[in-house]
Amino acid sequence: MTSKQQDKDIHQYDIHQKKGFSSEEINAMSQSVLNEKLDNIDAVTLSRLHQARQQAVDAAVLRPSFLQRYWPDRCNLSRSDHPILQPLVLVGLIIFALGTGYLMSHTRTDQLNLGQGEYLANEDDLEVAEDLDFIAWLIEQDKVSDNHAG
């Protein structure tokens, strides 16, 4: 008698000594009981399930979203093979979003701080500013000449 056969016999002996069903018997009986219950589902519940199914099929979105299309899973990289990849991509996206937000907020602040610079962008305003500078220079020159004369 081979050792495998001996093990099998001991296993069978143990089952009978335990005075209980084997795991296989339990599994088979459970399957039978559960399958039987499926056939006894009432008509109202079946109708509700049918309605839910129709609703789900009608609502089906058969095209992946932009993010889903380029998510690492689409490239046949499963999470179990690359456990760090998806979190990395997510962190990258968050940093990108935060960075973009930071830049945009700073750009807006800079624009607000321009103040007088905005007026200078206009050609007419440039001339006015030059005139004002010229008048200021003239006043200054007058003051200097007065001081020398005094």
Binding site: R48, A56, A59, A60, L62, R63
Partner: peptide, 22 residues
Amino acid sequence: QTQPALDIVQDAMLTLSKKYAH
């Protein structure tokens, strides 16, 4: 319970069809 079970199945079906039907 029956009613919550039906709701759960309905929600699960909708989620599958909306997010993973493709």
